[in-house]
């Protein structure tokens, strides 16, 4: 069983990396990009039966810093 954890900066938290990517896209001539936010994707290969609560705990204890980041868990069959 696999889970994908998406870690993103909370709304309102400045994202300098997103801004740099945005500038680079504009530099390549891509217009129409309003904003860019960068985040992380972490793939977990888990033992069958790992509980949702355990995955949540992994996210809140280590994978995301909930002072500045949100996380979203997507389970993959």
């Amino acid at each position: 069983m696999k889970a994908r954890v998406f870690v993103t900066l909370k709304n309102g938290v400045l994202d300098p990396q997103g801004k740099a990517i945005h500038h680079a896209l504009e530099g390549l001539g891509f217009g129409g990009v309003n904003d860019v936010r960068a985040g992380k994707l972490i793939e977990l290969d888990l033992a069958e039966g790992t509980s949702d609560a355990d995955i949540e705990a992994m996210c809140s204890k280590l994978l995301a810093n909930t002072v500045i980041e949100n996380f979203k868990i997507e389970k993959v069959a």
């Binding site: 938290v13 400045l14 300098p16 990396q17 801004k19 740099a20 810093n65 002072v67 500045i68």
Partner: peptide
């Protein structure tokens, strides 16, 4: 120390990159 929770807040990428 902030990651440990001994101090509040977080340290993020410098605003000027």
């Amino acid at each position: 120390l902030t990651e440990t929770g001994l101090l509040p807040g977080a340290l993020m990428r410098n605003a000027g990159i």
